[in-house]
Design a protein around this nucleic acid. Structure first.
Length: 698
DNA sequence: GTTTACGCATCCCCG
DNA sequence: ATGCGTAAAC
């Protein structure tokens, strides 16, 4: 294969894209970069996505073939969006371009080359819940005495195992560094981990970590495969590089080993995934890993007002471990971010809801408003308030559609069809049946562990205890129906049209909604011809639509509730960051870990830099239900220099919210109602602890 | 021995 | 709401 070399005298005017007019000089430099490694340090709101998009378009314009480009993004959705923007620029979709997350790309490659490592092409992907149940099975199989005080939960155990795999550390090392209180039982945990690995392989399955580890292994140990792939990928682009771990960095290094055209983009100030073993040194040390790295900086912020940026800058400079940088705003001044202490969670929620209505009256569309929080359950009170007022919202970060119990039940059936050795799928399906618990299920699985095809289960005599016999016969009936089908949608209907339907009706009071979900699921499946592709999509698309939506129709504008993690890369005109109290944000547990506080501060930075024009920090002064426990405002608020925020003082708590400010009754009153009700605006600079004095006023 | 029903604490972030 | 451990029922 002949190596493609960029010509330095490529004539930009021959392109349909006016690169010079549409990019600033910083961005243009990156887009026109020639061969070799490049590190792009892109501050928040500096046009990072735009730059990557133009870079891809530029490469294509220069004649690089689409299938020689690899674009790695943090979510699959981000990849799709970037590629359709490329299509917008070029007028044609870059067919054949490799785009997606590390996990989805690893999956694609392992479906092709997995045999080299002993997996079949129809191996199963285990999700978080499967992994957890498998750990549970391992604990049982090893007869571990879990009665010891504070024996870690299956979820926690899996966390330890997973962290070890992603960081390249052994389980004892992980325990010593992150969970010192379990040092005594480290050997037991290690044995659970070992069995876990064995059982996964026996079931021809991989968890999310295996996708990465196995791809790395394939590249490291199979020279022919490595060379073939590395030759194919002439240009590699990796977005959100600050959140990659050592395994991902090594995969990149292997894939770039022939051409060396590796361009990574990221912002060390926004590295927020160390709990998943993201390694900030990947980006900090990139120039050392790749000789002749050219480093670019995007420091012009197009997103936020100077007032918002001032807070972000002031906050992040308190971190030590980072590249030095300061973002410059191009927007005009508007208003300082507001600081809003509320007397309790309920008042906090009421303030946010009312302020949202006021913003809407001021002309900010609902879908340009977001409320962000540290942990998913922090938003509960607010959700009630929004429902009460009929404010349509979309909740991100909770259960995804594919994670709902009844959907997963169906998926488990399909997985058995795809891979009859999928132990976790069997466990789930068997567990649905009356009279079958963990022990019986394991006995049945023991008898079918060696089978090749689903057909074998149906023809073979399986020993089943008396009380489970009727259930087993029922299941065989369903599986027989499924064995006659091939298409994902038909398979789903084979399950939902049978005994499972009765199960849902008997089990759930809201069975109507759930049956609707299943019909939706079948409709979604109609777009797929291959069962494997369909199941891959289901397992790997964490960014599929959210479930908890409220109010309005599908196309109505909705505001967004989201965890900060899920808000990465997004932006809104108005942003509320709620529940900013010490112990919740920064979360207490984070402070025990090395670097934990700095990571929490980066999270605060990410939240802050999501806002374009309006930013509100809110917190309740008393936490809990009816306790009088006084909470401290978040350290991140206290440490800000004076004068950056404007405090809004709320009047004493009031009873039920007034109905006249309901979303649907907007003709009833004028746009000024909210602040009159909520309290006066207090023109006052705040600093440090001073605002705690106001507790008694409230 | 196994399953199920029930009361209890718990809940960070994700592909 | 979920998921755990424990105690009663099969």
């Amino acid at each position: 294969m002949k190596e493609f070399v960029l010509q330095d005298d490529f004539d930009l005017s021959r392109s349909t894209i006016d690169f010079k007019a549409e990019l600033n000089p910083e961005q243009l430099d990156v887009v026109l970069h020639g061969d070799g490694p490049a590190l792009v340090l892109a501050g928040a709101g500096s046009g990072k996505t735009r730059t990557i998009t133009y870079r891809v378009a530029y490469l294509l314009e220069r004649g690089v073939s689409a299938d020689n480009i690899l674009l790695v993004t943090f979510t699959n959705k981000a990849a799709k969006e970037m590629l359709s923007r490329v299509e917008g620029l070029l007028g044609r979709y870059p067919v054949g371009l490799w785009g997606g997350t590390f996990h989805s790309i690893a999956n694609r490659l392992l479906r092709i080359y997995g045999r080299e490592l002993g997996y079949s092409p129809s191996f199963t992907i285990l999700d978080q819940e499967d992994a957890k149940s498998l750990v549970k099975v391992c604990i049982k199989a090893l007869n571990v005495d879990t009665s010891a005080r504070r024996f870690p939960s299956p979820a926690k155990l899996h966390g330890m195992i997973s962290y070890g795999m992603n960081s390249g550390k052994t389980i004892p090392q992980v325990i010593e560094q992150k969970y010192p209180s379990f040092t005594e039982i480290a050997p037991i945990i290690e044995r659970i981990g070992e069995l876990y690995q064995v059982r996964k392989r026996e079931a021809d399955s991989m968890d999310f970590d295996d996708l990465l580890l196995n791809l790395r292994k394939l590249l490291q140990s199979h020279e022919g495969v490595r060379r073939k792939l590395a030759q194919q990928f002439e240009f590699i682009l990796v977005d959100e590089y600050q959140d990659t771990n050592v395994v991902q960095a090594e995969i990149v290094r292997q894939l770039a080993s022939e051409h060396g055209n590796i361009l990574v983009v990221g912002d060390d100030a926004q590295s927020i995934y160390s709990f998943r073993a993201a390694e900030i040194r990947n980006i900090l040390g990139f120039p050392q890993t790749y000789d002749q790295t050219k480093t670019f900086r995007l420091t012009t912020n197009y997103r936020s007002t100077p007032d918002i940026l001032a807070v972000a800058n002031a906050s992040i400079t308190q971190n030590k471990d980072q590249f030095k940088k300061e973002l410059t705003a191009v927007r005009g001044e508007m208003e300082r971010p507001n600081l809003v202490p509320a007397s309790n969670s309920s008042q906090e929620a009421q303030f946010i809801a009312q302020r949202i209505l006021a913003l809407r009256d001021e002309g900010v569309p609902l879908n340009e408003i977001a409320v962000l929080f540290r942990a998913a359950f922090h938003s509960q009170t607010l959700e009630f308030e929004l429902m009460k007022r009929d404010i349509p919202y979309e909740y991100r970060g909770g259960l995804k559609f594919f994670e709902r119990a009844h959907v997963k039940d169906i998926v488990a059936h399909l997985r058995i069809k795809q891979n009859p050795r999928d132990e976790m799928a069997w466990m789930r399906v068997l567990g649905l049946m009356n009279g079958i618990g963990i022990v019986t299920a394991q006995k049945i699985i023991g008898q079918i562990r060696d089978i090749e095809a689903l057909q074998d289960v149906l023809t073979r005599e399986i020993k089943v205890p008396k009380r489970a016999q009727a259930s087993w016969a029922m299941l065989v009936r369903t599986l027989t129906k499924m064995s006659a089908e091939e298409l994902p949608a038909d398979l789903i209907r084979a399950v939902t049209g049978g005994d499972y339907r009765d199960y849902v009706e008997a089990e759930y009071p809201d069975f109507m909604d759930r049956l609707d979900d299943l019909e939706q699921f079948a409709l979604f499946a109609e777009g797929y011809k291959s069962l494997t592709t369909f199941l891959d999509e289901v397992s790997l698309s964490a960014d599929y639509g959210s479930v908890r939506e409220q109010g309005g129709r599908e196309d109505d504008e909705k505001m967004v509730l989201s965890t900060i993690h899920q808000a990465k890369g997004l932006e809104w005109d108005a942003v509320f960051v709620m529940h900013l109290i010490d112990g919740k944000f920064p979360i207490g547990r984070a402070l025990e870990e090395k670097g934990g506080l700095e990571e929490e501060r980066r999270l605060f930075y990410v939240a802050t830099t999501r806002a374009r024009k309006h930013l509100f920090y809110t917190y309740p002064i008393t936490a809990g239900y009816d306790t009088l426990m006084i909470s401290q405002p978040s350290q991140f608020l206290q440490e800000l220099p004076t004068g950056l925020l404007e405090e809004v003082r709320l009047k004493a708590a009031y009873s039920a919210s007034p109905s006249r400010s309901r979303w649907n009754d907007r003709s009833d009153d004028g746009p000024t109602i909210v602040l009159d009700e909520m309290g006066e605006r207090v023109k006052k600079d705040i600093s440090g602890m001073s605002f705690l004095r106001d507790v008694n006023d409230l």
